[in-house]
Design a protein around this nucleic acid. Structure first.
Length: 307
RNA sequence: CGCGGGGUGGAGAAGUGGCAUCUCGCCUGGCUCAUAACCAGGAGAUCGUGGGUUCAAGUCCCACCCCCGCAA
């Protein structure tokens, strides 16, 4: 396939898709990503995963802060290709930019639209305990994740999947979906079908608070929460005024007061509203990740405390 | 100069100027039909690195290295 197109993306997931496309011989002429921002300790500047990948592949990159400005759409129009592919770009695409591409902008969305529109479809599918999810290819329109569907592919969501492993499954699926359907769409053999908007559900931007554990909930729900919000913000609570991250937990059949930490069969167990969670790995603020056994060896009052 | 916590036997922790401590692991012996059990004894640490203060520094001061949480 010898297409000329622009790729819009920002996140690590988006970089995985770009990588897959390039490996399949589908290399964009231009990559548009967002600006490198100060991040991490000491606020050092990091460019986006997509930007880094494009740089290593020698693809031309534009880093933009905002597409809404007056001059950006004009600049993009001057360099527009037949079509564009967009995956996890993170910025709203204004109508002026949409109109630049005769073939439209094809959006890769990691859910079975109209389910889980919005910025966090992978996390929300896990959090809800959905049995399956997938990837959708839609043509971008003026509303978020609202355009007609070119193609979809489903993927079973396993009870052990977290946001990372699921993304790792969905990215190759997205690449395959693009390779299989791009020709048909571009030459008019595939007519995108409108979504059933009445069935739409929405995901919200994730914040740190999404990871805070509420031990009155069921162990199953908290376990899903942990998988959904891995690696960020993770599942966390407070212990002795310090943040305690529960890195890895498993549902455990035991019942006590919610939040109570016990040692059952040599397992460190936190009781929940229904059932318990066996803690495998945890991390106290300022410390590194430890097994629950190592942690409770040094913090003797952890067992028996209530979170 | 974004804010903050930390580096102590193999693992995890206590220890704010005066003998280096606890739990686990390890070694030896004992006990038990048996268990991630119990009992007795033992080995193992130049307290992250380099300076400084002091009669005396894990502890106070200065610099550096490394790990981590927050915020973005």
């Amino acid at each position: 396939m010898d297409y000329k197109f622009t790729y819009y993306g920002t996140s690590d997931f988006s970089a995985q898709i770009l990588q897959g496309l390039v490996q399949s011989g589908l290399t964009p002429q231009l990559v548009i990503s967002t600006l490198a921002k100060p991040a991490g300790r000491n606020l050092t500047v990091h460019s986006t995963p997509v930007s880094q990948l494009a740089a290593s592949l020698g693809i031309e990159i534009w880093e933009v802060s905002n597409l809404k400005s007056v001059e950006q759409p004009a600049k993009i129009a001057a360099r527009a290709h037949q079509f564009a592919i967009l995956a996890a770009f993170g910025k709203i695409i204004p109508a002026a930019v949409l109109g630049c591409y005769p073939g439209g902008i094809i959006n890769v969305h990691p859910s079975l639209l109209p389910l889980y529109r919005g910025p966090s479809p992978i996390q929300y599918a896990i959090k809800d305990g959905a049995a399956e999810t997938g990837v959708s290819l839609i043509v971008l329109d003026n509303e978020i994740d609202h355009g007609p569907i070119i193609a979809q592919s489903a993927c079973a969501l396993m009870p052990v999947d977290d946001a990372v492993t699921l993304a790792n499954k969905l990215a190759p699926l997205a690449v395959k979906l693009l390779l299989d359907n791009l020709p048909g769409y571009l030459n008019g053999l595939i007519t995108p079908k409108p979504q059933n908007h009445l069935q739409a559900t929405f995901s919200k931007m994730i914040s740190r608070a999404d990871g805070q554990a509420d031990f009155n909930k069921t162990a199953l729900a908290i376990g899903r929460q942990r998988r959904a919000f891995t690696p960020w913000p993770g599942l966390w609570t407070y212990w002795r005024e310090k943040r305690l991250k529960l890195i890895d937990v498993a549902v455990f059949d035991y019942q006590d007061t919610p939040g109570k930490v016990s040692l059952i069969n040599n397992q460190v167990v936190i009781s929940c509203g229904q059932g318990s969670l066996a803690v495998k790995l945890l991390q106290l603020e300022g410390g590194k990740q430890l097994t629950a056994a190592d942690f409770s060896r040094g913090h003797k009052d952890f067992i028996g405390s209530t979170l």
